[in-house]
């Protein structure tokens, strides 16, 4: 035991005297160290990508998918505790199905995300539960266009053009800001997503990772959430590696410059 603390972090639903809810803040800490996930809003749809850290060499490649589908037109990717994410996605599926059984049409993204926001927020209010240890990026297409949202452990959600969460979020956000959002095409966004995930993984190179990318696009997938086809994924990976090598070359080039400077001295 390092410190006893003030006691205001022991229970959910209790504020500290300066108005903080520590359990919710600790849940965000669980997210901060998890694999990076990003979402991109494009001209014709949404692209989701995640850096899936391989915890064991025995895990079968391609058999442990992290990106999930809430409804045919809605995809979700999250960073944080995987079981919490699964529970979140199950609720999303229930919401989407019960909407469809009453209204006979697919659920709109605004309605879905507000229901999920309520759901996550409820877990910050009761003593018998803990907050969700995830940041979930939810993206999809409805009849009013494409939408990208991110839900935090507090239950708050914001609409984004480019969203990033997990360990590499700062670097990923800096890269997303350089893109021409939301005017980029889905195909280009897939490549950029691969490049960004590859880039932010570099600081964490001792661990292996698997790249997962999915998309929802009117033109490419007829408005349905799907993993990108294998050839495109390979093309994107190649692009990501070439870009990374280019960066390293220029790094070493400038490095040799400084070497020669030293030689001059």
């Amino acid at each position: 035991m390092t410190s006893i603390g003030t006691g205001y972090d022991l229970s959910n639903s209790v504020f500290s005297p300066d108005g903080r809810n520590f359990q919710v803040e600790y849940a965000s800490k669980a997210v901060e160290n998890a694999g990076t996930s990003i979402g991109i809003k494009c001209k014709d749809g949404i692209v989701l990508a995640t850096e899936k850290i391989i915890a064991s060499k025995l895990l079968a490649p391609g058999k442990n998918k992290k990106i999930q589908t809430i409804d045919r037109h809605v995809g979700v990717v999250y960073s944080g505790l995987i079981p919490d994410g699964r529970h979140f996605v199950n609720r999303g599926r229930d919401e989407a199905q019960s909407f469809k059984s009453l209204y006979k049409e697919p659920m709109g993204l605004e309605g879905l995300i507000s229901r999920l926001g309520y759901f996550v927020q409820a877990y910050t209010c009761y003593n018998s539960v803990r907050p969700f240890g995830i940041n979930a990026i939810v993206g999809g297409i409805d009849d009013s266009g494409s939408h990208l949202y991110m839900v935090e452990p507090s239950g708050v959600y914001w609409g984004y053009m480019g969203a990033a969460t997990g360990k590499g979020r700062q670097a990923a956000k800096a890269e997303l800001e350089k893109l021409d959002l939301p005017n980029i095409s889905c195909k280009d966004a897939v490549k950029e997503a691969a490049r960004i995930i590859h880039l932010v993984h570099e600081d964490n190179k001792d661990k292996d990772y698997e790249l997962e990318i999915s998309w929802i696009s009117k033109e490419e997938t007829n408005g349905i959430h799907k993993f990108v086809p294998n050839d495109l994924l390979e093309e994107a990976k190649k692009y990501a590696e070439e870009e990374a090598e280019g960066r390293n070359d220029s790094d070493s080039a400038s490095g040799s410059d400084s070497d020669s400077d030293e030689d001059m001295e």
Binding site: K104, E105, G108, E110, G111, R115
Partner: peptide
Amino acid sequence: HLDLYKATNGKEPTPHLAASI
């Protein structure tokens, strides 16, 4: 139901939606 739909989904209900309910 249509009032509720309008409030929670931020859009006007369609005739098809009303008929479904």
